[in-house]
C-alpha cells in the first residue's frame, strides 16, 4: 500500500477537513479571538488530523501488505482465504467475508464440475468396454466366415479398435486419478503385442519390421506403454515412402534404458517438429492425409509424463523419423 495513492484516495476527506478548518478560523477571527490562540488551535487541529490519518493508513497498510504478499506467493490464488486473518477494521471485514463467500461458492462449482468430469470419464470407460464386445463379435464372425472382403473388413475393424483405444487413453491421461500400475515388464513382450496388432498392416503395406536387443526389463505399465508404442508404429505405417521399414531397438545407458523406434518414412518438417506433441496439432503430414486427429502424440506425451518416461522425436523431412523413449533404470536392483 502506497501513501501517495492513499492520500489521493482520501482527497475529499482532506479538502473537507481544511474547509472546516478555514471556517473555524474565520469564525475565530470574526469573534476577535487573539492571534496566538488561533495559531495554537490550528496547529493542534492539523496535528490531530495527521495523527489520525497516519494511524488509519498504517493499520490498513499492515493488513493489506500481508494480504498482497501472500497472494503473490500463492500458486493457486483462490487459497488466499486460508491465509488471511480476520481484520480489525470495517472495510477489511467486508472484504474478508466476501472472499470467504466467493471461495466457498467457487469450491462448490468446481466440485460439481469435478463430479461431472468423473461421471463422464466413467461413462466413456464403460462405453468403450461395451463397444469392444460387438467389435470382438465382429472379428470372430469375420474369422469364422472366410470371404474375399475379409481383409478389408479386418482392416476397418482394426481402425475402429485404434480409435476407441485413443479415447480410452485420452480420458485416462487427462485425469489426475492414478489408474496405472508400474511393474517390471519385458520390453520384448510389449513390442511383440504391438507387432501382432499391426501385423496385417505391415504385410498389406509391405513394410519390414526389424527388432534387435529388446530382451530388457523395464519399469512401466505395460498396457500404457503398448498404447504409446502402437501410436508411434501406426504413425510410421501411415507416413511412408518407398521400401519402408520400421526398426525397433533398445539401448542400455548408464542410468536409463532407451527404446528407439526408427522409420525411413516421410519424416516431419523442421518447422513442425517442435510442435508435434501439442494437442490437436496436425502439421503438414496430417493435412496431407486429412485423417489425422493430432491427438495421438499428444496422448503419448501425457502418458509418458505420468509414467515418468521421457519421449523425444528427431526427424529429417523425407529421410527418417526417430522416436526415443527413455526409462529410468531400477536403481534398487
Amino acid at each position: 500500500m502506497k501513501l501517495r495513492k492513499y492520500i489521493k484516495d482520501k482527497w475529499v476527506t482532506i479538502i473537507i477537513s481544511f474547509f472546516f478548518l478555514l471556517i473555524t478560523i474565520s469564525f475565530l477571527i470574526a469573534f476577535k479571538v487573539s492571534l496566538e490562540l488561533i495559531i495554537a488551535l490550528t496547529i493542534t487541529f492539523i496535528l490531530f488530523i495527521i495523527i489520525i490519518f497516519i494511524y488509519k493508513f498504517y493499520r490498513k497498510k499492515h493488513y493489506y501488505d500481508v494480504f498482497l504478499n501472500n497472494l503473490d506467493r500463492l500458486d493457486q490464488k483462490y487459497l488466499i482465504s486460508e491465509l488471511i486473518k480476520k481484520p480489525n477494521f470495517y472495510e477489511g471485514e467486508i472484504l474478508y467475508e466476501s472472499i470467504y463467500e466467493i471461495d466457498k461458492s467457487m469450491t462448490e462449482r468446481v466440485s460439481e464440475y469435478k463430479q461431472s468430469v468423473k461421471d463422464f470419464k466413467e461413462f466413456i470407460e464403460l462405453w468403450i468396454h461395451e463397444v469392444k464386445i460387438p467389435l470382438a463379435s465382429l472379428s470372430l464372425i469375420v474369422h469364422n466366415n472366410k470371404s474375399a472382403v475379409n481383409k478389408k473388413i479386418k482392416e476397418q475393424i482394426n481402425h475402429l479398435e485404434d480409435y476407441t483405444e485413443q479415447i480410452l487413453y485420452y480420458v485416462r491421461s487427462e485425469n489426475p486419478e492414478k489408474d496405472y500400475l508400474i511393474k517390471k515388464c519385458s520390453l520384448d513382450e510389449i513390442v511383440k503385442n504391438v507387432a501382432l496388432k499391426n501385423q496385417d498392416n505391415f504385410r498389406y503395406k509391405h513394410t519390414d519390421f526389424i527388432v534387435s536387443d529388446l530382451d530388457k526389463t523395464i519399469l512401466t505399465d505395460s498396457k500404457w506403454l503398448e498404447f504409446i508404442i502402437n501410436q508411434i508404429v501406426s504413425n510410421s505405417l501411415k507416413y511412408q515412402r518407398e521400401n519402408p521399414y520400421i526398426k525397433i531397438t533398445a539401448l542400455e545407458k548408464k542410468d536409463e534404458i532407451q527404446l528407439i523406434i526408427f522409420d525411413n518414412g516421410k519424416g516431419i518438417s523442421s518447422s513442425d517438429l517442435p510442435r508435434v506433441f501439442e494437442k490437436s496439432f496436425t502439421g503438414e503430414n496430417g493435412r496431407d492425409t486429412s485423417k489425422s486427429t493430432g491427438m495421438g502424440l499428444y496422448i503419448c506425451y501425457n502418458l509418458c509424463q505420468k509414467l515418468g518416461h521421457t519421449i523425444k522425436i528427431e526427424s529429417v523431412k523425407d529421410k527418417f523419423t526417430k522416436v526415443t523413449i527413455s526409462f529410468a533404470k531400477d536403481t534398487l536392483v
Binding site: D188, K192, A195, L196, Q199, D200, F202, R203, H206, D208, F209, I210, V211
Partner: peptide, 16 residues
C-alpha cells in the same frame, strides 16, 4: 495369415 501370426507371436517378424 495363421502362419504369420504364429511366427510373429514367437517374435520372428518375417515378411511375406
Amino acid at each position: 495369415d495363421d502362419l504369420m501370426t504364429d511366427l510373429w507371436n514367437n517374435k520372428e517378424y518375417i515378411n511375406d
